[in-house]
Write a protein that binds this DNA or RNA. Sequence first.
DNA 1: TGCAAAAAGTTGCAAATGCAACATTTGATA
DNA 2: TATCAAATGTTGCATTTGCAACTTTTTGCA
Lengths: 210, 210
Amino acid sequence: MKNLFENISLKNKEKLFKIFRASTVKFTKGINIIDYMDRTNSIGIIDTGSIDIIQTDYDGNETLIDELKENDIFGSTIYSIVLSDECSIITKDNTNVTFIDYREIENAEFIKSDFYITFVQNLLAIIFEQMSFKNKRIDILTKKTIRNKLLTYFKQLSKEQGSKSITLPFSLSHLARFISVDRSAMIREIKYLKEEGMIDQKTKKIRLYY
Amino acid sequence: MKNLFENISLKNKEKLFKIFRASTVKFTKGINIIDYMDRTNSIGIIDTGSIDIIQTDYDGNETLIDELKENDIFGSTIYSIVLSDECSIITKDNTNVTFIDYREIENAEFIKSDFYITFVQNLLAIIFEQMSFKNKRIDILTKKTIRNKLLTYFKQLSKEQGSKSITLPFSLSHLARFISVDRSAMIREIKYLKEEGMIDQKTKKIRLYY
DNA sequence: TGCAAAAAGTTGCAAATGCAACATTTGATA
DNA sequence: TATCAAATGTTGCATTTGCAACTTTTTGCA
């Protein structure tokens, strides 16, 4: 996975930080970052660690909007409406985040320097990757039954891992949140899939027979 | 909405076309573009017209993955796994699409020219907008009931249109496909919302009371 | 290695949803 | 303006799902 400052020297990285009025902030586990950021114009890049973007609606239900890891980007420009008051950005580990002022991408002075172009290209690559990730999630979420959501996700993994034997990158509880269904209902559906001989499954190891 | 070639002269646009091995293709209504594109390395930009990205699974169910309009971008880099065989890209009108070779963004020779930077910045702006759109759709799709999907979507529109009186940008049938629920079940839920005094609705005009 | 917390798995039941098969209204156009 | 297609709206019913309340298993770590 590409890093935002890949192929950029430390010196030039510091220059970029100046251009973008960037600052790196260290958060401990379990902090809501949103209280620390300028909601209107800044983009956060995760240097190390990981965060969850969680929305809580009026009756207290929590939905996992997004989960971000190293090199992922978040911010009001990307989430716009989503990043409203009901939203929290919670660190899952000790996490370092670099905030840059998005507006400066458009009117930077050092615009013709090599490292500026490298930076923008890196940014582009990261965003493309995130786009792809989001499209895959939408592909799952638009399926109407838990069964089809699971099968779609398994097929995606199978393609990525190049095999009919796949390993889930996270726990089943986590998978349920990711595909946005009730955990127990999901496990029940997995049981049915096993009974019908569509899959074999033991915790995170799954073999597809379809 | 930003155009990919905003602030770029016709002459420079032509240079960019050369750099990116770009070509513009005219499609009539109802064509599946996917047959005409290099699936691995090209990005399509819609100059005029609109397209639907539709997935058909084994039992013939069609899901609307995405619907793109002028200036939107699509391509294998973005959709990766989604753009597999079950996927079709169908023109809804007469549509002009410019294909560029994505790899050339990274190793272009004219990299320091003004218009190249402008181009990349335009691309960035367009992608940010699409990201935001996708996040909003995920926000809706992760809601577990039709009611919450509707309320979430209405709230988004209300924020965008700056009013509690909103106008749907498309038909109700279309809305059902967008939030990926059964149309009749959705209309039933809208009826309940009206009965409970949460909203007023007449075709595309909706007033929120919550 | 033992213990507490997280994850996995089960089940009954009420509520929500999809589906099918209609009737009615709206809108485009010949 | 007559006509046909698309969109809207309605309803019954079977299926799917979420939810709650459990038990059992796994895992991290003191």
